[in-house]
Amino acid sequence: MEPFEGLWNLKELQSLNEVRATKAFVANLGNLSQLRVLSIADVRSSHCSQLCNSLSKLHQLTRLEIRASSEDDLIHLDDLTIPNPLQVLDLYGRFSDGTFESHFFLNHGNALQLISLKYCQLTENQLSQLSKLSNLTYLDLTNAYNGQQLNFYFDWFQKLKKLLLKDLSHVSQICIHKGALLSLEYLCINNLQELRDAPIGVNFLTSLKEAYCIDMHADFASNFWKAKLDHIPNVYSTTEGK
């Protein structure tokens, strides 16, 4: 929705969803000191400095969603200093390289339980930094990684229970190293058209209860059922368009 004049005077407001970023709203956002849930869309690079400043005043915030205005707008969160540890974070769009080294992530990152990253072009180094968030139980990567090989190394994502990998158009191989994703119970791989084989090391995922492979290449579907999947109680696979 469009932020109406005086929205920032609703001092007791606790949840605000799908509000469009404007210069005036971002500047006055800090007045909504009781906000617990915030979803802000159409964020431009030019908004980010003031947005970080305003977010630093929201002491009750537990869930935050930021959507970039376009793929060309870089979300700068290096100066993010939210005083209250967030539980849920959703980022839509590209963000700066130093995001996971920001004050917020260094001091409160381990409180995060759920993260959704979409259209953000993660590097392997950023994924490594993300893997260190010790209490993360849910991770959604949608069109969020441009590499050809997606690795999950030893000791990565130790408490993660649910992993969604969707629209990773360049990924042709997934490799799960022994000691990674030890608590994973649910895995969904959706529309990875360059992926032809089941993830290497899927047999290491001894806690996995459900595996879904949706809208995949026909070669993947054929090879997937040849992999070592007997330890997974529920397995489901479809090819593109079926």
Results as ranks from 00 to 15, higher is better:
Phe4Lys: 10
Glu5Gly: 04
Gly6Phe: 10
Trp8Met: 06
Asn9Glu: 11
Asn9Met: 00
Val19Asp: 07
Arg20Gly: 08
Lys23Ser: 10
Ala24Pro: 03
Phe25Arg: 01
Asn31Trp: 07
Leu32Gln: 04
Ser39Arg: 09
Ile40Arg: 01
Ala41Asp: 04
Val43Gly: 05
Val43Leu: 10
Val43Ser: 05
Ser46Val: 11
Ser46Cys: 11
Cys48Tyr: 02
Cys52Met: 13
Leu55Ala: 07
Ser56Asp: 05
Thr62Arg: 14
Leu64Thr: 06
Ile66His: 03
Glu71Leu: 14
Asp72Gly: 13
Thr81Gly: 08
Thr81Trp: 02
Pro83Lys: 10
Pro83Ala: 07
Pro85Cys: 05
Leu86Arg: 02
Leu86Met: 09
Gln87Glu: 11
Gln87Phe: 01
Gln87Gly: 04
Gln87His: 15
Leu91Arg: 02
Leu91Asn: 02
Asp97Ala: 14
Gly98Phe: 00
Glu101Pro: 03
Phe105Trp: 14
Phe105Ile: 02
His108Glu: 08
Gly109Ser: 13
Leu112Lys: 03
Leu112Tyr: 02
Tyr119Met: 09
Leu122Ile: 12
Thr123Gly: 09
Thr123Cys: 03
Glu124Tyr: 12
Glu124Ile: 14
Leu127Val: 10
Leu130Pro: 03
Leu130Cys: 04
Ser131Ala: 11
Ser131His: 06
Ala144Leu: 01
Tyr145Gln: 09
Asn146Lys: 14
Gly147Tyr: 05
Gln148His: 15
Leu150Met: 10
Asp155Trp: 00
Phe157Glu: 01
Lys159Asn: 14
Lys162His: 12
Leu163Arg: 04
Leu164Asp: 09
Leu165Asp: 01
Leu165Tyr: 01
Lys166Gln: 15
Lys166Val: 13
Leu168Met: 11
Val171Trp: 07
Ser172Asn: 15
Gln173Pro: 09
Cys175Ala: 06
Cys175Tyr: 12
Cys175Phe: 10
Ile176Lys: 00
Lys178Gly: 07
Lys178Met: 05
Gly179Trp: 00
Ala180His: 03
Leu181Thr: 06
Leu182Gly: 10
Leu184Met: 02
Cys188His: 13
Cys188Met: 10
Asn190Asp: 15
Asn191Tyr: 12
Pro199Phe: 02
Asn203Met: 12
Asn203Trp: 10
Leu205Val: 08
Thr206Met: 11
Ser207Gly: 00
Glu210Leu: 13
Ala211Thr: 07
Tyr212His: 09
Ala218Gln: 13
Ala218Ile: 13
Asp219Ile: 08
Ala221Gln: 13
Ser222Glu: 04
Phe224Gln: 04
Phe224Ser: 03
Lys226Trp: 01
Ala227Ser: 14
Ala227Gln: 10
Ala227Phe: 11
Val235Glu: 00
Tyr236Thr: 01
Tyr236Ser: 11
Thr238Ile: 08
